[in-house]
């Protein structure tokens, strides 16, 4: 039986919450990357992302992708999770962008369907673009999935990311859950009073009304949060406490990341 609009919305909200819970659980698992100092991990994986973006040869990008897979396995992240959370959506979006290149890039044809011909050069360009995007997204996902979000934020601060940006990111992550809970409550309460499947016009009306109410509640919440910050001494500038302590193993990881990034850059130049 086809699920109603309200049921589908509830399922999406629950899935979003589950996704966040799973990511937090993974970050606290005893894996290889989970043990690495957040600053070194953020800097090292960011260097690998840059190397993947700069590499001009597919084998170099493929090696970085293989390294990302190895790191994921050592960090107890199952490939099925990466496939669902990262690879499929990235393939969809990047593939959509790369698709025209298959046909419009001049070069020797490798396959043809009537007037449409896929060129070897186009195929290589599209493969390189998709491979870069998949590798970069996998490496970025490794940071998020193996590091508690607060540590990611603090690491960003260590790298001189403006404190306002870090504070906004932190509060956004914090209040997404409050608003998600509010939305879930609203839709559950609507479901408890709804019989049958809503007409399209009613679904649109319900979606618009819910969005309006959520926006209004969010505005009220933001005003109250600002008051709560003022009440505890906030004067327009946020101060954070940096309490990282790198160990010898962290510096080894740092060297490993640097070597891998340098090798990929040299090979892929």
């Amino acid at each position: 039986m086809k699920a109603s609009f309200v049921e589908r919305t509830l399922a999406s909200l629950a899935a979003a919450s589950d996704y966040a819970a799973s990511a937090e659980q993974l970050a606290s698992t005893a894996g290889a990357l989970q043990r690495v100092d957040a600053r070194i991990k953020v800097a090292g994986l960011f260097a690998l992302v840059l190397a993947a973006a700069a590499a001009r040869h597919l084998p170099a990008v493929a090696c970085l992708f293989a390294a990302a897979l190895l790191l994921a396995a050592l960090s107890r992240i199952h490939p099925a999770r990466l496939a669902a959370w990262v690879w499929t959506p990235v393939l969809f979006f990047t593939g959509t962008i790369a698709l025209p290149a298959l046909f419009v890039t001049p070069g020797p044809p490798v396959a043809a369907w009537g007037p449409l011909a896929v060129s070897a050069t186009g195929l290589a360009s599209a493969a390189l673009l998709v491979a870069r995007a998949e590798t970069a997204a996998t490496l970025a996902a490794l940071v998020v999935l193996t590091t508690p979000w607060p540590c990611v934020l603090k690491a960003l601060r260590v790298f001189r990311c403006p404190v306002l940006v870090v504070a906004i990111l932190g509060m956004t992550y914090r209040y997404i859950f409050v608003i998600l809970e509010t939305a879930l409550d609203m839709f559950e309460s609507r479901k408890s009073r709804t019989v049958g499947v809503l007409e399209p016009a009613d679904r649109r009306r319900l979606a618009a009304a819910s969005a309006g109410v959520l926006l209004s509640k969010s505005l009220q919440l933001s005003a109250d949060v600002h008051l709560a910050m003022q009440a505890r001494g906030f004067r327009g500038e946020i101060y954070l406490l940096d309490d990282f302590q790198a160990r010898r193993a962290d510096w080894c990881w740092s060297g490993g990341f640097a070597l891998l990034a340098a090798a990929a850059l040299w090979w892929g130049r």
Partner: peptide
């Protein structure tokens, strides 16, 4: 929920003394 706007409990409790330098 209005008052707990920091990423962790530690950061939350440290917020006021940090703002007061």
């Amino acid at each position: 929920d209005v008052q707990l706007f920091n990423p962790t409990v530690f950061d939350e409790v440290a917020f006021a003394p940090l703002q007061l330098r």
